[in-house]
Design a protein around this nucleic acid. Structure first.
Lengths: 242, 242
DNA sequence: CTTCTACGGTTCTATATAGAACTAGTTGAC
DNA sequence: GTCAACTAGTTCTATATAGAACCGTAGAAG
């Protein structure tokens, strides 16, 4: 029994419809991280498709970073590696040089009307604004302001802080089925205004790095806009091109 | 007649050997940008492989950004879009906001022994150091120092400057068959030392952005290390993740 | 001149099949 | 107990084939 899928456009080729179906089942939480998916043979039988078509659909998801194939063993759901890459950028290190995961403190979550630039980027004015402070060994080093569409994340303001970890993308995925697949960053340098200077514990006008990010879901729809601000002298941003 | 290929490891699957062969012919300049490659049918006949296998090889090269398929028309060699992406990063703009391609002036090219960090990154100490200044509307905005392995780029020092355009990667490809497929950037913040300050026409100690880049050839071998330095206030770096 | 139609060539989708390569677990020999 | 051999199940490679979808051109129709 395979639920025939009303949402997928029937004009799409079969392998893409199968890909969408599997992606949806992943988003619905049918499998956990590192879980074994049905084999190519089973899928082909269930969906009445040839193995070649199934392979093509799976390959697509592998390319998108959702699945992982192990020859001889099977196909597995991959824990989104996005968090890791995210944190390779802010090469935050303790004084002794050991890399460390920053902690994260939520300052506010409010439903607001988005600033025009943000509204244009997200395609809606009805958003939730999140303010957040990230610390490393008790010392703040990054002040962030995030906007997410209220329609896509209903009730986000009400989630108890205790249930929100240091990273938001897992929360998006677990509670709202939104998988952040891609993002665009822009880095520039500026000076700290009074509010952020106070939050970061630096002098007003001190040099800061600004990172603007627009994050997209698998569908290509923008789902988060954020700007982060940290002291320039401790800042490192890494990226990989090509 | 297809040259049987002595360089490709015969233990590799056929589609990878075909990919290598085509990649080599591209590097050898057999086709120019936007040229039409032989059709799948022709390739499959020439190499005595099935169309499916040929498609797999071509798909690989498409994924790597070397080729471009147009349904109904054929498969074309893609002008490396690397230059474009490269310059999306340095979002240099004229005063009126119009994006502009910076000009480039070579200051020196010398065969030297690499600094230890660079030597370690490139895997050799025998390198050519290139110093370069990039300008936008006559005003310098980026001072660069590059290192490339002398063995991989023999005679690079001797190429007349008139034959080197504003971008180096096309030169690597055209004259040395080195296709830069991938790069890793690191952006950080610092202050200008005396030499770069003079070159950029800014005060010593002024805030600057530093971009370190390690570039890799298709084979995975590192082929260039560079560091670029520009005034922090005019700087923008863009990247795309995921 | 414009629009339509037909055609050869191309890539794209999909199926069916066979065997190789690999993995993890089980069984059996010693 | 240890190690080798076997086995069922999985992905991977490769082939062959058929038709759909698409592009560019050439020629016909208006």
């Amino acid at each position: 029994m395979t639920a025939p899928n009303p949402q997928s456009d029937t004009r799409l080729p079969a392998y893409l419809r199968l890909r969408d179906d599997i992606a949806r089942r992943i988003a619905a939480g049918e499998w956990g991280p590192d879980d074994l998916l049905p084999s190519e043979n089973k899928l082909s039988a269930q969906h009445a498709l040839s193995v070649g078509t199934v392979r093509k659909a799976i390959q697509q998801l592998v390319d998108e970073g959702l699945l992982e194939r192990r020859q001889g063993s099977g196909t597995f759901l991959r824990k989104p590696a996005f968090d890791a890459t995210l944190f390779r950028f802010f090469q935050a290190r303790e004084a002794d040089g050991a890399p460390s995961i920053p902690s994260s403190r939520l300052i506010s979550r409010t439903r607001v009307t988005a600033p025009t630039a943000v509204g244009a980027a997200l395609g809606t004015e009805d958003v939730i604004r999140i303010e957040r402070l990230r610390c490393l060994s008790e010392q703040p080093f990054l002040a962030e302001t995030l906007y997410i569409p209220a329609a896509r994340f209903p009730g986000f303001e009400a989630i108890p802080e205790s249930e929100i970890g240091p990273l938001l993308y897992p929360v998006y995925l677990d509670r709202f089925g939104v998988f952040v697949a891609r993002a665009e960053d822009e880095v520039r340098f500026g000076t700290a205004d009074a509010a952020t200077a106070r939050r970061l514990g630096i002098a007003e006008g001190a040099p800061v790095a600004l990172i603007e990010r627009l994050a997209f879901a698998m569908s290509g729809e923008p789902v988060e806009w954020r700007i982060a601000c940290g002291p320039a002298d401790r800042f490192r941003y890494r990226s990989r091109i090509g």
